[in-house]
Design a binder for these strands. Structure first.
Lengths: 104, 104
DNA sequence: CCGCTGGTTCGACCTCTGACGAACTTACGA
DNA sequence: TCGTAAGTTCGTCAGAGGTCGAACCAGCGG
């Protein structure tokens, strides 16, 4: 497989982040990751979504700078880039996650 | 002209809000409104945008629940629904505006 | 070496979105 | 009353975005 591209902190743009979070599926993934810290790709779909679509969403999140993906044997482990995001856009991720919780 | 539709606070959804904010043009409008409080539609375009496109963006913002529009004679005055948004999604608008400022 | 498991990539499809000009509506002012 | 200024609405266009199945690729286990 190809190199996994992750943007540098300074390359992360606000519109990209907001767009990535504006999809319910991706927002759900981010919520899950905020609780579980690190999960493999396959455990992030709610069953109602195909492998390829899930992979697409994870790519959007990764390229927006929201998540980090590392290879572990045959699977990829995904986690939130919490610290870097906090440094770049202080409070943003937290308030979005809080809002997501409120919206239940 | 038709009735101007504004969603009730409880009808405002997080994905809609984030999607509305994920467009640079609309984000700029929200930034402007966070400073000036209330402006007429025409003064919100950066010159580089047509009237109809601007009207479209303002409609997206309004229907996402971000802005309030009132009629004043021949023009419409647009303002942020700051309090209602704060109540619905505490801290969200503030951190987005802060992030927008950081991203300069 | 072969098959399985976990993911990615590739078209294809259809919808949504942003952009524009042109036509229309409304209110104000001369 | 007529024109003008401010916005909306409409139709259209091109491009982006989400979804899927199928094909593909990499490791691991037998």
């Amino acid at each position: 497989m190809r190199e996994i591209h992750h943007p540098k902190p300074e390359e992360i743009t606000l519109p990209d982040v907001l767009h990535a979070l504006s999809d319910p599926v991706r927002l759900g993934i981010v919520e899950t990751l905020s609780v579980d810290r690190e999960r493999s790709c396959g455990t992030l779909g709610n069953g109602s979504i195909s492998k390829s679509t899930l992979s697409h969403h994870l790519k959007v999140l990764r390229e927006a700078g929201l998540t980090w993906t590392r290879v572990e044997g045959t699977q990829r482990l995904v986690s939130l880039r919490t610290e870097e995001l906090e440094e770049r856009f202080p409070g943003l991720l937290g308030s979005v996650l809080g809002a997501a919780k409120v919206a239940s």
